[in-house]
Each structure stands twice: as C-alpha cells, then as structure tokens.
C-alpha cells in the first residue's frame, strides 16, 4: 500500500543541479542520460539498476499527489509510491518524465515528458537482494 503522505520534491531536481556519477564525473541534472545511470550502477558494489514499469497512475490522498504502481524487476514485484504530481522519474531512453510535466518545468525548470502507463523507469535495488 502507499505511504500516507507524498514526499516533497528534493532540491537536486532543480535545473543546473550538479550530480556526481559513480566514476566521479560531474553532470547537470538536465544532461543525464540513461547510460549515466547504467554505468554508475555497474560500478556500484551495493546498488543495481532495475526496470520499473508504470502499471497504474491513480489520484493520491492530497490534490497534488498521485499513487504510481510499478512492476519492478524480473520478478515483476508490485510496488506503490505516492509522490507529488511534479516528481520526475527517469524513463529508459527518454529521460525525465512526470505526471505533470508543466508543473515540473514551472517549479524546477526541468524539461519533462508526460509519465504514462507502460513507461519503463530507472529504479534501484540492493545487489544481492532476491
């Protein structure tokens, strides 16, 4: 089930934020590519990239929140998260996407596509977890 309150948007989604990849390279958040996440996870000893497919998008408990149901990894585990509509997820091969891209762009100047059912997002799990 979803958590009771959506998580506020953290500062690193603001356009121009400096992100450090696992190999030490610095990139702006808006310049990140799918390969950056994949290569960083390959270097990481603890974290593993998983594919999380958007299965459902429903209204959340507050007007600006949505509950997104993901199917995670090879096991297709069902995971729900409640987030603000402007919360961006990184979609494989596409880049930043949110349920309300206009609001994400307005608040964070981060260009976004519309997050849709069927989109495959980058997510993380712990290595060794089965």
């Amino acid at each position: 089930s979803a958590s009771s309150s959506p998580v506020a948007l953290p500062p690193f989604f603001m356009r121009g934020s400096i992100i450090q990849l696992a190999d030490g390279e610095l990139k702006r958040v808006e310049d990140l590519k799918t390969e950056d996440f994949i290569q960083s996870a390959e270097i990481s000893s603890e974290l593993k990239i998983d594919s999380s497919t958007v299965e459902r998008i429903d209204s959340g408990q507050s007007p600006n929140a949505v509950v997104i149901q993901f199917s995670v990894g090879e096991l297709k585990a069902q995971v729900c998260v409640e987030v603000l509509v402007e919360y961006p997820f990184f979609v494989f091969g596409q880049g930043w996407s949110s349920c309300c891209p206009d609001r994400t762009t307005q608040l964070f100047e981060l260009s976004c596509a519309k997050l849709c059912v069927g989109d495959v997002c980058v997510s993380l799990t712990l290595r060794g977890m089965r």
């Binding site: 690193f12 696992a22 995670v72 990894g73 993380l124």
Partner: peptide, 25 residues
Amino acid sequence: NVEPRSVPVFPWHSLVPFLAPTQSD
C-alpha cells in the same frame, strides 16, 4: 567582497527511486 560558496554536489543515486521488490523466497 562575496566569498565564493561551494556548489552542492549530489550523488547520482539520490535521483533514482529505491524500489525494493518484495522478497519472494
């Protein structure tokens, strides 16, 4: 004079949701 302030640097993994699948076994 304005002292240069260090720019915050965020680790790549902070941008990615941590979605832990439920353990099946």
